[in-house]
Amino acid sequence: MDLNKAIDLVKAELVQSRFEHTLRVAEVSKELAVVYGVAVDKVQLAAILHDYAKNWPSEKLKSYILDNGLPRELLDFDKELWHGPVGAHLFENQYGVVDQDILNAIRFHTTGRAEMSLVEMILYLADYIEPGRSFPGLQEVRQASEKNLKYACWLVARNTIMYLMKKNATIHPDSFYAYNDFTRYIKTEGLLNG
């Protein structure tokens, strides 16, 4: 899919503030792709498409999940997680996106998962650190993003899980799988004691 077509498609679907977020994520993704030697066009397309279904009403997302054979267990978790799998399914089945890196980046940009590709990690991280965000611990992640992609993603997974635990929210298993996968890596690399 052409990047300009993707931008037009997404702009028509999102409220203005979410579209602006999407453009910032695309810009940060591009910067990270250059730093980590990843194909910029792939990363930018995933970034532009990642929140396509974010502003859909809950009932529309739920219907899409049930009508299209997506895992029913998604409904056991917060609706904020639904738009990633819905968007990935939609772009694969209605818009002909076949690149699994792009589709997985969209699918898992909220939860993360074990054994993420570079494209997936870049979107996961860029979505978290884009300049419009502001919350405790963010600066540490931004600084880490310039030095070690997996360590920065570990921080994202850790911070997200801790935030959700403080809210007594259910946490998708993929978030724990991502955290554990990154933890094993940073321990092996000597980046974490214990």
Rank of each mutant, 00 (worst) to 15 (best):
V15F: 10
C153E: 00
V34A: 14
V119S: 12
R158N: 13
E130T: 12
P136F: 10
Y64D: 13
I48G: 14
T170N: 08
A47T: 05
P136N: 13
V156K: 02
N93S: 12
R107D: 12
Q44T: 14
G37V: 04
A33E: 04
K147N: 11
W56H: 07
T188D: 11
L49D: 10
A33T: 07
L138W: 04
P85V: 09
F108T: 06
P131L: 14
V40N: 07
V156E: 05
S17G: 01
L74C: 04
E73R: 11
S63V: 09
K60Q: 15
Q139G: 03
A178S: 08
L49Q: 05
G112M: 01
L192Q: 11
L164I: 08
V35G: 09
K54M: 08
F19R: 03
L9F: 08
S134K: 11
K62D: 01
A6I: 02
I129V: 15
V98Q: 14
F176Q: 11
D2Y: 03
S58T: 10
H50D: 08
Y179N: 01
Y36D: 05
N104S: 13
R133W: 12
S134A: 11
L66G: 00
S175I: 08
L66H: 02
G37L: 03
D2N: 13
D99V: 10
S63G: 01
L66T: 07
G84T: 03
F91C: 14
E73L: 06
S145A: 15
M121E: 14
S117G: 03
D76L: 04
K62N: 06
L103I: 10
N148Q: 02
R18P: 00
V38Y: 01
E31K: 13
L9N: 11
Y163L: 07
F176Y: 15
K54G: 03
K166A: 15
A33K: 03
M116C: 06
G84Q: 02
P131D: 14
V34I: 15
P85F: 10
K147V: 07
L192S: 12
R24Y: 06
F108E: 02
N104L: 07
I106E: 09
V97K: 01
G87S: 12
L123G: 02
A169Y: 14
R18M: 07
A144F: 01
L103R: 06
N68M: 11
N168H: 07
N93P: 00
G37H: 10
S63F: 00
Q94C: 12
Y64Q: 13
D101Q: 02
